[in-house]
Design a protein around this nucleic acid. Structure first.
Lengths: 151, 151
DNA sequence: CTCGATTTAGTCGTGCACAACTAATTCGCG
DNA sequence: CGCGAATTAGTTGTGCACGACTAAATCGAG
């Protein structure tokens, strides 16, 4: 007989017992926190993630971008079109394989990296986790993603 | 000098160092896992969350639903309209306050609860966490949500 | 070499998510 | 009581996210 509140958790239909809801709510809360910072860079949150990949590895195919971000081409194609329209990148068919499209940063896209440098620290600060909690959270989230993805 | 891989984490612009990306990817992976189960119930994932709240507390206002799920009326209004069109709930202006709209389950909406009973267990199984990991993850996610939301 | 299978981007339709705004109703101060 | 402020749903516009599909290019077995 535990004196603490009951923990039905497994198989419960109560919203607040659901890990999935905690995950969903946290994800939206974090992107909401990013919004004002990214507004100053003229980026949305998914666009920011694409830029992170490109700053790490320029000239990547749409396919490999999709693998890195776990997004479909039907999500990426219009998103990349908007980033191209904003002058941050160029899309060009690869000569060696005309099916593939290489995404390359423009000068403006590469320079945006400098202005984005303060963003992760500001968010990390807002999340308010200790380095240990941060590492633990990442570990658990990757475990969930891996378990839930396969089969 | 740690022999393991470096952990720059704080202030890094590498995608895989970002807790925010782990969160975003996990959230989408989990909802993707729900999709085939919810398809059988004729629900989307956000619709399922709304139904969870209604099974817990029938006859709730749009406002209170928004508080529970942290969603705006501009998201809920069309979503509720679709659930109403599918015969799962009714919307009626409250007599005592004509600004407010009460959401009430129909018979079909209440009965759907029985068919949904197996969903949380199936998902919990797919996530593959120990009860301790599950509790820890929920705790960390709620901490992040709370820290990131205020101010 | 050839032709069906595979790979790669992209389009289209549906349903969130949210900011900005509107309209109706209720509240509450003077 | 009267009227401006606040509350509540809802609409509109933009941008994801993803399934289903298409078109073009490449691959590979025979």
């Amino acid at each position: 007989m535990s004196p603490a509140a009951a923990e039905p958790s497994e198989g419960s239909l109560l919203l607040d017992d659901q890990l999935c809801f905690a995950l969903y709510a946290a994800s939206r809360a974090v992107t909401a926190r990013y919004r004002p910072l990214l507004d100053e860079l003229g980026l949305t949150y998914p666009q920011y993630l694409v830029m992170l990949v490109l700053w790490e590895q320029d000239s990547i195919s749409v396919r490999d971008l999709g693998v890195a971000l776990q997004l479909e081409s039907s999500t990426l194609s219009p998103l990349l079109k908007r980033l191209e329209a904003n002058g941050l990148l160029r899309r060009e068919r690869r000569a060696e394989d005309e099916r593939s499209v290489a995404i390359r940063l423009t000068e403006a896209g590469a320079e945006l990296r400098d202005r984005a440098g303060t963003v992760p620290l500001a968010i990390g600060d807002a999340m308010g986790l200790t380095p240990e909690q941060d590492a633990l959270a990442k570990q658990l989230l990757r475990l969930i993603t891996a378990n839930v993805s396969d089969r």
